[in-house]
Simulated assay, not measured.
Amino acid sequence: MSVQLKAKMAKGLKMSDEAFITLLVVSAAVFIFLFASLLVPNFFQFQNVVNLVTNNWAVISLGVGVTFLLVSGNFDLSVGGIVALSGVLAVWFAQAPGGANALASGFGMPTWMAMLFALFGALAIGGLNALFVVRFKIPSIIVTLGTMLVARGIAQVITHGSQRNTNLPDDFGFLGNIYLFGTSIKLPVVLMLLLVCVAVVIEKRTIFGRLTFWIGANPVAARLSGIKNARHQTHLYLFSAAIAGMVGILLASEFKSGFSSRGMLMEFDALVIALLGGVAIAGGFGSVVGMFFGALILATVTSAATGLVLSPDWQYILKAIAVFLAIVAQTWALTLKNR
């Protein structure tokens, strides 16, 4: 066998960096779950695994949009504010007019129209992100931090710093409380799983997914190759805002209320699970599958900490340690693999 043929075969058998990191994340998720099972009584149960997913459907959904933007070299810290705003808008638009007080009065729209207009509100925030990041070249971390505060501020004004939960039509709580075939799994969880599956297909099998990686890896080369970076990044911000808007609407439907503090710190949790899943903070590298298992790692750590009766303050410290270790481990593993 020729030397050239052997080299080609070795190259073909070599695992890609992305697959290597994803495998490490999956292995870490399994190891952490088994380790937590040794420390926490009754932790090693199938229902507990289901709960880790179902209880975190909102953050995982947000993580899809955040992952695509991170891979493209951009941040989106506005998703938590969009969750609050879209939920509040949906409730406000659906509330019947002439209520007992200001928080009980709305526009009286049909539920479907109220939710649609609330989604438009979420897309407006996504459009602002794209305008300032893409058009005016302001760093995305600054822009999206600002629009997160704007979105949450508008939600607080509409709710007077409280919540709207009265004078709603009976069908407003329908979407958020549909159970799947008599199980304890609600429709939002199913929609999250579908979203993850569709995102994986987009990431792996479409030109849109490939463009996201190329722009993140080398935006200058991508632009010189004829790729329209600005338009693609605009689509990514609108995509992330649409996901956050739908999450906010579904949460508002589930609890039949619009709460200005809903989604608080979800933007950071979405960023954390993406980084735990191996997404490079500098762009050009990562996967939705890795993000999903990163969410399981974070959920396992948080759940185990609760089972060990650790205070919420310690849970924040554990999150910070997990992110730091994830970034260091990714850099070390890739350096060792490609040595």
Rank of each mutant, 00 (worst) to 15 (best):
Q330V: 15
G63W: 07
I185V: 09
A305K: 01
V3Q: 15
Y316L: 15
F35V: 10
L34Y: 07
G294Y: 05
V40P: 06
F293E: 04
F68H: 12
V53K: 02
V323D: 05
T67Q: 07
I21K: 13
N177L: 06
G65K: 11
A84C: 07
F75I: 01
L318V: 14
D313L: 15
F43M: 02
V143C: 03
A244C: 01
T111L: 03
R135D: 07
N48Q: 13
F20K: 09
T144C: 03
K228C: 10
T300E: 03
K228T: 08
I138W: 03
V59M: 10
L224N: 08
A299F: 03
F136I: 09
M192C: 05
N229A: 10
R339F: 15
A130K: 08
L116Y: 07
G209R: 05
N218V: 08
R262W: 07
W92F: 08
P97A: 00
M109H: 08
G146I: 03
S61W: 09
G99L: 04
V66I: 12
T331I: 13
I227L: 07
A326Q: 11
R164E: 05
L250W: 00
V40G: 05
I60C: 11
M109L: 14
G173W: 07
E254N: 14
A100Y: 15
L89A: 00
S16F: 13
Q95G: 01
N229Q: 08
F31P: 02
S16H: 11
R210E: 12
L238F: 02
N167D: 12
V79I: 11
I249N: 00
A28C: 10
V83L: 08
S37N: 06
C197F: 15
P110E: 05
V25D: 05
V272C: 14
G80D: 08
I281C: 02
M15N: 10
I125H: 00
F75Q: 10
V91F: 04
